[in-house]
Design a protein around this nucleic acid. Structure first.
Length: 753
RNA sequence: GCCCGAGUGGCGGAAUUGGUAUACGCGUUCGACUUAAAAUCGAAUGGUGAAAACCAUAUGGGUUCAAGUCCCAUCUCGGGCACCA
């Protein structure tokens, strides 16, 4: 007898799909569309991992489900290729990041094809392809034109030894992670996107999204809208007044001192000859403190500036202190301290022996002007890295920035011999001396050497999918109108970063008339991680990584891998890999194969009820994203077909329902049965049987079961009489009954004694 | 510290609107087939108990005819934010 040979079947169908391109999507005006995408992967050298497979398979199940239901479906694919790993590899080996990326993409593509995904491969995109990043630069210029891409001086971590900016995570105990030199906070000019311009709309529209509550809450907290007031405090002795932000202007009578951040811009004007040295010392120490230190040790520190302010409510002179518990980047960088009301101010006052005055509340608008402040800061987008999208800007001889004209795009990444940053703290782009020179409108200029944060490249890629090879525009208006916004977007990361940035760009481009919608993603599925069998995170160093390609090549095949990852648990929860359960799913698919290829069919349709029940269950479960219970329903169905025998129709229905999960096997079954893959329908009339089981409870405890005609289900009296006549029930009802409650919907009768 | 989410057999998990707790899978045990093993097929499987029955959804209360599900308090785990005035 023939056996189920997944690798043979899968190779056959993958070849057919490669040649006939059944997943190629074209706009068909009038036909309902469905666009689905996963968060495109960063193609690492390690290849696909089981987390990718879970993510991509969720999208694939929905893609195939809606295709079988007759919708016009687009499911594209792409690669997020700029980033540190490729650059570090280049620094270490001298291999061009372009070449490493090419190799990794080829590997990812090959592996994705072995999983049988219903991808329109003609729409593949790659963010480091000049044809793509030309339009990333175009997007930047649109933001720049409207003043939403701008330069600003701000404090950054700086390593004087390596001459480079460091991210917070690259600073360990106040020292550079590479050279262990003490880092300092340095004022530097950097590029920002003005996301705060859209803070209110980003916040307001969250509630209208069909996204997980968890993500919506995280975004709301991230934006962090606070309603309060700004209040001016005059400074005794003539220094400029200090504006504070407070959410409690009504507590101003209790404000007994002011506190400014160490980075406060007008700090100098507050100092006296007696305090100057001490305050500047404090400032230097505070700026040196790493974020980690600051978070771990919240012991209040601070010094008196030497100046006093006038409380506009009490007219009293109150001291002005500097302390690092006040943050420069939030509000005005200065606060009025109300130690009687605020825990932090209280702690500070106790420690430095400052007055604490109980206060009556006053009218909120009496002394200040209403002001709304956000926790969210503008998005710092410049990176001193080689392997990123060059910022399309050049500087004239006076250092003023000028946009590169759109007809000179793309600004290509120059080739260099050494990818390491030089000691000017600039990226390796600065080493391409010829490339640096550019002529704009006849004027000699020098190019910007910073590149864009990778998140900029992924802030518009979903729109590129609509017309991926367009050379006239970033996206085609007709195509975008037909396909987008995205109906389903699936991923397990970037809850606030990417998912907020893409919303921001969407609103901006909608305002500019380039997009006909203001939210890019209708429904978001946020999938959980897959952990090692011991529940710990998979990692190379722990040696507990499961390679999906090993699972396939071990003989289980892609269909088992896919179906197992859908069966592993609720899609949005973390799950632990269980190699033995993989075997269970493989056995299930084997049984499906046997039903199609090695079974005599029943002539009489004894299984019509379970068939219709299963069709309904699987359909509704996929609509609810309950993929695990959909697979369980198919297993139950197969077990029943084994027991009762199957008709040809049973097996055709099985293959159709199985196809989203195990498309190769299902295609093979459908071919054998000469059937199409149209999604099956159920008929409610087959879901009711002639008789129905009634549960009889005594005081809520199951005591007996009755079988009655379905027609009698609404005859409460008949059922109650039947129940009371039951031998088991009578054991309990000798001393009489208080009342009965009959619930036809639950097929349940509760007798209270 | 604050904000989310979760806690159910030996294990992963099911229970969709308050209505038969433990679907489905793994594991285990027994049986069939086999010289044997694997594979496959079938049966059993929450705990205690001979049985009747009783006890079980993190813990303690409450609401209800009825609670895994709702309410209050507590504990544990996971995630996010973290001196945001």
């Amino acid at each position: 007898m023939e056996r189920y040979e997944p690798l043979k079947i899968e190779q056959k169908w993958q070849k057919i799909w490669e040649e006939t391109k059944p997943f190629k999507a074209t706009e068909e005006p009038g036909k309902p569309k469905m666009m689905l995408a996963e968060m495109f992967p960063y193609p690492s050298g390690a290849g696909l991992h089981v987390g990718h497979v879970r993510n991509f398979t969720i999208v694939d199940v929905l893609t195939r489900f809606y295709t079988q239901q007759g919708l016009n479906v687009l499911r594209p694919f792409g690669y997020d290729t700029f980033g540190l790993p490729a650059e570090n590899y280049a620094i270490k080996t001298g291999t061009a990041p372009q070449d490493v990326t090419k190799t990794n993409i080829a590997n990812f593509r090959k592996q994705a094809k072995r999983l049988g995904y219903a991808i329109d491969w003609d729409r593949e995109i790659n963010t480091s392809d000049p044809e793509y990043y030309k339009w990333t630069q175009w997007c930047f210029l649109q933001l720049y034109k409207k003043g939403l891409a701008y330069q600003k001086e701000s404090y950054q971590w700086w390593c004087p030894e390596d001459q480079t900016v460091l991210a917070n995570e690259q600073v360990e105990n106040g020292k550079c992670w590479r050279c262990s030199h003490e880092v300092e906070k340095k004022k530097m000019k950097q590029w920002f996107f003005k996301i705060t311009e859209y803070a209110d709309e980003l916040l307001e529209e969250i509630d209208s999204l069909e996204w997980p509550e968890k993500i919506k809450t995280m975004q709301k907290n991230w934006i962090g809208r606070s309603v309060g007031a700004e209040i001016d405090f005059e400074v005794a002795g003539g220094a400029p007044h200090i504006t504070v932000f407070t959410t409690r202007p009504d507590t101003i009578y209790g404000a007994t001192f002011l506190v400014v951040a160490p980075e406060y811009t007008a700090l100098d004007s507050l100092l006296t000859d007696d305090t100057r040295e001490k305050v500047l010392d404090y400032k230097a120490t505070a700026l040196k403190k790493s974020e980690i230190e600051r978070q771990e040790n919240k012991e209040k520190t601070g010094v008196f500036t030497g100046s006093y302010a006038i409380n506009p409510a009490t007219k009293e002179k109150i001291p002005i202190w500097v302390a690092d518990y006040v943050l420069a980047g939030y509000g005005t960088g200065a606060i009025m301290a109300v130690p009687a009301m605020d825990d932090r101010d209280h702690e500070f006052a106790e420690k430095f022996d400052l007055p604490i005055v109980e206060t009556e509340l006053c009218d909120r608008d009496l002394f200040g002007t209403p002001k709304v402040t956000y926790r969210m800061r503008d998005w710092l987008i410049s990176r001193q890295r080689y392997w990123g999208c060059p910022i399309p800007i050049a500087y004239d001889k006076d250092g003023n920035p000028h946009p590169i004209p759109e007809d000179q795009l793309p600004v290509l990444i120059p080739e260099v011999d050494d990818y390491k940053p030089d000691n000017s703290g600039r990226s390796a782009l600065a080493k391409a001396k010829d490339w640096l020179k550019v002529t704009i409108n006849g004027e000699e200029m020098t190019r910007e050497t910073d590149t864009l944060d990778g998140y900029a490249c992924s802030s518009w890629y979903l729109w590129r999918y609509a017309s991926p090879h367009d050379i006239e525009a970033a996206w085609d208006q007709d195509a975008i109108k037909y396909w987008e916004p995205v109906d389903y977007y699936c991923g397990g990361d970037h809850a606030v970063a990417h998912l907020l940035y893409i919303r921001f760009w969407c609103k901006f481009f909608a305002d500019e008339g380039f997009l006909p919608f203001r939210e890019p993603i209708k429904r978001l599925l946020y999938n959980g991680y897959i952990n090692a069998p011991d529940g710990k995170k998979m990692s190379k160093s722990k040696g507990n990584v499961i390679d999906p390609l090993d699972v396939i090549n071990d003989g289980y095949g892609a269909d088992t891998l896919r179906t197992y990852e859908m069966f592993i648990g609720p899609y949005d929860m973390d799950a632990a890999w269980d190699p033995r359960s993989v075997g269970g799913v493989y056995r299930f698919l084997n049984r499906c194969w046997t039903l199609a290829f090695a079974t005599e069919y029943n002539r009489t349709d004894k299984t019509i009820n379970i068939r219709h029940k299963t069709i309904k269950k699987v359909t509704e479960d996929i609509h609810r994203y309950n993929f695990n219970t959909a697979v369980a329903a198919l297993m139950e169905y197969v077990n029943e077909l084994y027991k009762s025998g199957a008709t040809e129709e049973d097996v055709i229905a099985l293959a159709k329902l199985l196809k989203p999960f195990a498309p190769h096997l299902a295609s093979e079954m459908l071919e054998k049965l000469s059937a199409n893959d149209e999604w099956p329908q159920w008929d409610e009339k087959y879901l009711v049987s002639d008789t129905v089981e009634i549960v009889v409870q005594i005081n809520g405890k199951l005591r007996a079961k009755l079988t009655v005609n379905t027609d009698d289900l609404n005859d409460e009296k008949k059922i109650t009489d039947l129940a009371l006549a039951d031998e088991k029930v009578q054991k309990y009802t000798k001393s009489g009954i208080k009342k009965t409650i009959f619930v036809p919907k639950a097929k349940l009768l509760n007798i209270v004694i």
